[in-house]
Design a protein around this nucleic acid. Structure first.
Lengths: 227, 227
DNA sequence: ATTACTATTCTACGAGTAT
DNA sequence: TATACTCGTAGAATAGTAA
């Protein structure tokens, strides 16, 4: 899942470039000195610079006694990503949960339910996206995750109201906005019909999550749940 | 220069443990799943856990289907260190905060602690005044103020070092210079790092603040905090 | 001076597997 | 099931050096 993201040693190189001045403009530094700051050799520092360039995280201009390095927007984005993760943990402890579960294949009813117009319209209005017609079923494995699910049951969440048509009635559904892998927007559904036990949650998103992440049964998915 | 600091791949492992729940308590996870989150093998995840343990950044308890991992203070410190670096770059540095709290009577321990010579000498040296032998306890009531306190925890502040005498040991104390009512010089002390008393601060000054302002329990005091 | 290529050393990764 | 050991190997780091 994390394969496309920046390698940790490159991230650290970028971070130090940021810290020593890159946050507010270009920095002039030689590979020898950068190596000293990072505790690595001149040669490795040189290669790190080249790797960061190749990936588009920095731009540079070689000059007489060093190089003028500028962090690109893409570079700032990867720094901000980590910054956000730390900030949320250190400063906004009460606004979200992380919950994790393992993919499993259900009976395919999810798609049927969420596409009932009585529900679908509300999803669109209250969640701000048009759900892909299908749900991702997650089985919660640890007591910690089941505990979080129980806490979600107590919280108000976003209520999708039930309705009645000529054939039958449909119950209320409680949702929480989530970020799948702390990345893609979606929602977690707590459905009152009890085909499944309390160690199961269903997830919807505008995208086909199973396909996007190439998920197979048993794969781990984690969600950031907004409360 | 950077040789004693945490290796980048270990830092990333710690960061993800923090992100998926370690920021607010223990997380239960197996090495297989941790590997999936980090994009590495089960074996490597296992080794990372062992390395983090060996360096004292986490503690754990192996259980039936995984392990219960808790990030230690030392672990939080290395995360905070990076956080601070990013914060300084991304956020405009303000030179002070305002924080407010309500006077309450403690157990009178404050006077005892600050007059220990090991501390008192440092107060004099590092704050530039001889504290009145007593502390003013303030209870923070608003989320705003508690948030400011949390931010102060992350900032370096002025460090009063702990010490050991024949009877017991005394921990580090972090201070910030303040102006009480934006008027009288003093300092704010962040003493205990437990999660349960984060709504309390203690204030010292050369003068007897309680007397000077004729403060009674419940009275509001506001401070300008220099950072 | 620098940066960065090539050759060599070394370390981190993951497969296989023991516990 | 788990975790974590050994070990062969790939790739990262450095030394030497060219540009």
């Amino acid at each position: 899942m994390n394969n496309e993201s920046i390698e940790s040693e490159l991230w650290f190189t970028l971070y130090y470039l940021f810290k020593i001045g890159g946050y507010k403009g270009s920095i002039f530094i030689g590979t020898e000195d950068l190596g000293k700051i990072l505790g690595i050799s001149q040669q490795t520092a040189s290669r790190r610079i080249l790797d960061l360039l190749k990936r588009g995280y920095i731009e540079r201009e070689i000059r007489k006694n060093g190089q003028l390095i500028t962090i690109t927007e893409k570079g700032f984005d990867v720094l901000k990503e980590i910054y956000r993760g730390l900030k949320e943990g250190f400063e906004e402890k009460e606004k979200f949960y992380f919950i994790k579960g393992h993919v499993f294949t259900g009976f395919g009813e999810g798609a049927y339910y969420i596409t009932r117009p009585g529900y679908y319209k509300q999803f669109e209005e209250k969640l701000g996206f048009k759900p892909f017609p299908g749900t991702l079923n997650l089985k919660l494995k640890s007591l910690e995750d089941i505990k979080i699910r129980k806490e979600l049951e107590i919280l108000p969440g976003i209520l999708i109201k039930g309705f009645v048509n000529s054939e039958r009635s449909y119950g209320d559904v409680k949702c929480f906005k989530v970020k799948i892998y702390d990345d893609v927007d979606g929602a977690l559904l707590l459905i009152d019909r009890t085909h499944y036990n309390r160690d199961v949650i269903e997830v919807i998103s505008e995208e086909n999550i199973r396909k996007k992440y190439n998920l197979k049964d048993g794969d781990l998915v984690y969600l950031k749940v907004m409360i």
